[in-house]
Design a protein around this nucleic acid. Sequence first.
DNA 1: TTCCGTTTTGTAATGATTACAATTCTATAA
DNA 2: TTATAGAATTGTAATCATTACAAAACGGAA
Lengths: 136, 136
Amino acid sequence: MAHLQGDLAKVLIEREIKPSYHRIRIYRYLVENRTHPTVEQIYSDLQKELPTLSKATIYNTLKLFSDKGIAKTMTIEEKEARYDIVEENHGHFKCKECGDIYDFKIDIDDLGTGDLNGFKIDQKDVYFKGICRGCQ
Amino acid sequence: MAHLQGDLAKVLIEREIKPSYHRIRIYRYLVENRTHPTVEQIYSDLQKELPTLSKATIYNTLKLFSDKGIAKTMTIEEKEARYDIVEENHGHFKCKECGDIYDFKIDIDDLGTGDLNGFKIDQKDVYFKGICRGCQ
DNA sequence: TTCCGTTTTGTAATGATTACAATTCTATAA
DNA sequence: TTATAGAATTGTAATCATTACAAAACGGAA
């Protein structure tokens, strides 16, 4: 436990992220709080110990983490909702480059319901992200 | 084709949606444009033919359609992004009632890559929605 | 036609996110 | 140790999708 900060710093360095103090603390927060926190939550919790922390830093840092692959955003990365006629058995692929969204066939019901016993599942969505053929 | 409006109206009535003219036109737009349109796109396209159409109506109507199950929103219904440490093989279940998000085990790589030949897939996300055990 | 409830409109408010310039920090070299 | 350059952080203002809400328009029943 004594080397926690150091261990975390190592992870950042491996991913080519300079381990500044704030970055380490934000990363540590994510590791210790597996609760899908919002920026707001991260901010209000960490501010108790880091009074000068600003939201802008959190946004910057999370964006950096996402780019480097050690954290990810849980929305499909849209601030604008998009709408769809209800239709079964397809997933959505979003190209990071051109932003286009492609449908692809997938049997979503093949997905087991995992360990969701007793849960009522109304909707199943599968989202992939990457680079489409045309943008490679 | 002559009865298009009427056919669409029937679908709405089946779902207990009073088929007002604007509602039919918005539904028709979704049926004819399988392009995951945004509210902005729906608005600017439909406005050419329906000059008095307002965005508020589109928001209202899409919300109604979603509630009645004939359309769906393609985001996980959050305006606030949530963050996650990168970790493999779990999906996210969001309870519509309490808003909590649960992880569940799933082998996402079991999902075939569908017909995405030549696409580079960086990230695969599975989102379920419904009612959790505690809220039933 | 009149009336009532529903739908639609327009605008103002909200709230997350981004942009950006100014400030602070950090590591390295003199 | 001090100076300096580049990176990180801050704070605030701007942006933009979405929601709230009251007023107006609409539509069907009597």
